[in-house]
Design a binder for these strands. Structure first.
Lengths: 228, 228
DNA sequence: ACAATGCTTCGGTTAGGATCGAAGTATGAA
DNA sequence: TTCATACTTCGATCCTAACCGAAGCATTGT
């Protein structure tokens, strides 16, 4: 007893439905205002304000004042990764929502995991990159190979520039729907941005799901053929 | 909002201090009775009983009746791995216990993580096995090499027999104190048992920490030299 | 200066659930 | 059978924390 870190504190933070919904909303990667988060949690702004203060005190959230707005985001990508892993665990234990809504399939296919692509397509992308030798996987780490760097350059991603950032280039993130790893880190983020910029896909307003255009989907699947 | 698995449920399960303490106690790997768990949680047996029922309903615990005792364990090793990862996250966010007791250093050095070795020594062991080529690491997976199988045989571990179990042979588990991976899975379990059987180390009654004998420590360090 | 918007703080209510005493059930021992 | 132990269920209490209305700041716009 009374050993190690206090897991009850974060458990309690995540254990409240309103807070859990707000955190889930922030997994979409966009910075949201207190009012928007109140709506996401299904509560009034006053209540949301106290919740947000608690989450911030627990180092799960960061806020940025901008004019009279206050934008909240997850404190960093490790929070997103952590939440995703809880979702995976919860799904494996049968802790699902009462009714899997119509959006559920779309979420499983492709969604945003804080700032990178997750779901079936996210997993497929990483598998494909590894299969063609663009990414080397060893241990829990991932690394871009020389040939991978060239290949990524051709689709408009400057790996060299990404390397200079403080944030890790490649990181694996466990996918709750697929139960496999997908690509996080600054490269994961850059790839998603790339697809969005090209118009291959767009993020939806209310949900974390990512919608591919027919042409974008064709290009994506061609670029990342199924591994094996 | 209302997307994906329900993280609030498990958050709430772990968020209660009494339940968190009981779960932490079960990370020691031993099956404990309701009475013992009540003591670990600092509550009466009646209260513990209701908590245990909830944890079991949430698929976090499994119980086994034996005479008039009821032994509880974590539902499976993935629960242990999950709890360990929460501890790592909590530690990284500064959610520590009020006062790091005197047992803390011992815990960081070597402790039991459900059924395998964790802490500094656990991480060192895996690093060393990888460095000498006994274990291959790729992706998030680990695999024993042929030479590794032979080497393990020489210290009394039958990898072939372990393979036939349903449980994965090697698995990496993120260590909360070291923030690096250590070895879980049936091989991790077998290695720990091996050390205990040989008398190199012993588990303590009340804590998760593992105490090495002077001679056992010497042997262990020689067998797993620091990598790099 | 004044109004409007976004958010926080205060105060008081309410509900959920953690808690324990007491009683009830099951298993084993004498 | 009778008693003891291990645990669960019931009932009642109590306390925390979630919640919202109202008021208070802060920032922007007119």
């Amino acid at each position: 007893m009374k050993e190690g870190p206090d897991i009850a504190q974060i458990g309690a933070l995540i254990g409240d439905p309103a807070r859990a919904n707000m955190l889930t909303a922030l997994m979409g990667g966009k910075a949201l205002t207190a009012t928007e988060l109140a709506a996401a949690g299904g509560i009034t702004v006053q209540t949301a304000s106290t919740h947000l203060a608690k989450l911030e005190a627990g180092n799960l959230l960061a806020q940025r004042k901008q004019g009279r707005h206050r934008y909240f985001t997850l404190a960093d990508d490790s929070v997103g990764k952590f939440l995703e892993s809880i979702m995976g665990f919860a799904a494996g234990r049968g802790h699902l929502r009462h009714k899997p809504g119509p959006k559920e399939p779309a979420l499983r296919k492709a969604r945003i995991c804080y700032d990178h692509l997750a779901g079936d397509y996210g997993v497929r992308m990483l598998d494909s990159l590894i299969a063609r030798g663009a990414i080397d996987a060893f241990g829990d780490g991932l690394a871009v190979t020389e040939s991978g760097e060239t290949a990524l350059k051709s689709i408009g991603i400057d790996v060299h520039a990404l390397r200079s950032l403080r944030r890790p280039l490649c990181r694996s993130c466990l996918d709750w729907s697929e139960r496999r790893a997908h690509l996080a880190g600054s490269l994961g983020k850059a790839l998603l941005s790339n697809f969005l910029d090209k118009g291959w896909a767009r993020r939806t307003a209310e949900s974390r799901s990512v919608i591919f255009s027919p042409e974008g989907e064709r290009q994506f699947l061609a670029l990342f053929p199924a591994a094996k």
